[in-house]
């Protein structure tokens, strides 16, 4: 078995290496996010045709659905990082988990707000307690709970470990959000885009949606890199590599 992958990961998990690595990639990720986001918005709001049933109102899907996917994706990343943080006590995993939470909470909030704005004209209501909407709201509370628990401890690493437990327990909600529309009768419609099998959307509407999905992924990477870098500097404040960076900044 090739063992350069674990070796590379092990080296990457060292704070100074990750600090440099993230610093190099961050501007690229941000550029790609903005570029793809602009293309997707133009494709979705200008090029894509109106829907046969919902007219132009469906166009909020280009924000709503990528945000919803990100809310679950970021929770999954946070859960995996929390698991690694708890078992192996890797500092970088704690940082990734805790710095993902505010980004995930933001995407969940956007999902709920855009969904509400979409629901009023189409369904006839801002909010209803069906399984999909309720479980997505629970996801927002889980993100906020993780942030709150993390900040409640004076010692940040202790806080991170407590919050990591909450993150792992809450991960059970992610499949519930995803499958809620299949398991229960809901007002919310089923999945449009299927990884396995036919998607129920014509291609000239689907490509802007998928492009926006990519854009949000890059935005998450860029945002996480920036937050993690700041966090690492604060956590490793007394270490030589941070002092070196401070001196270099001073000399400039």
């Amino acid at each position: 078995m090739a063992n350069w992958i674990p070796l590379w990961l092990h080296r990457l998990s060292s704070p100074p290496t990750f600090y440099r690595f993230a610093g190099t990639l961050q501007p690229w990720a941000m550029t790609l996010a903005l570029l793809l986001g602009a293309i997707a918005l133009y494709g979705g709001l200008v090029l894509a045709p109106a829907d046969y049933q919902q007219g132009d109102a469906y166009r909020i899907i280009f924000i709503h659905v990528p945000s919803a996917w990100m809310s679950m994706f970021i929770y999954a990343v946070m859960g995996v990082a929390s698991f690694i943080a708890l078992v192996w006590r890797i500092k970088l995993a704690e940082v990734v988990a805790m710095e993902s939470a505010p980004i995930g909470a933001a995407f969940t909030f956007i999902t709920l707000v855009t969904g509400s704005l979409w629901g009023k004209p189409m369904w006839g209501t801002w909010w209803t307690w069906d399984a999909r909407l309720t479980s997505e709201l629970v996801l927002l509370f889980l993100f906020l709970g993780v942030i709150g628990l993390y900040r409640a401890f004076e010692d940040r690493r202790q806080g991170a470990r407590a919050a990591a437990f909450l993150a792992i327990i809450g991960i059970i909600n992610v499949p519930i959000v995803h499958f809620s529309v299949n398991w229960w009768n809901t007002l919310h419609q089923g999945s449009t885009v299927n990884v396995f099998g036919q998607s129920k959307m014509s291609w000239d509407m689907l490509w802007p949606l998928l492009t926006m999905t990519l854009a949000t992924k890059f935005y998450y990477a860029a945002s996480l890199f920036r937050r993690a870098r700041t966090d690492l500097l604060a956590l490793e404040g007394g270490k030589d590599w941070v002092r070196q960076i401070a001196q270099d900044e001073d000399a400039r």
Partner: peptide, 14 residues
């Protein structure tokens, strides 16, 4: 409340 399905397509196609 009106429920809509998960299908999206242009009017011409429909």
């Amino acid at each position: 409340l009106a429920k809509h399905d998960e299908t999206y397509m242009p009017k011409e196609l429909k």
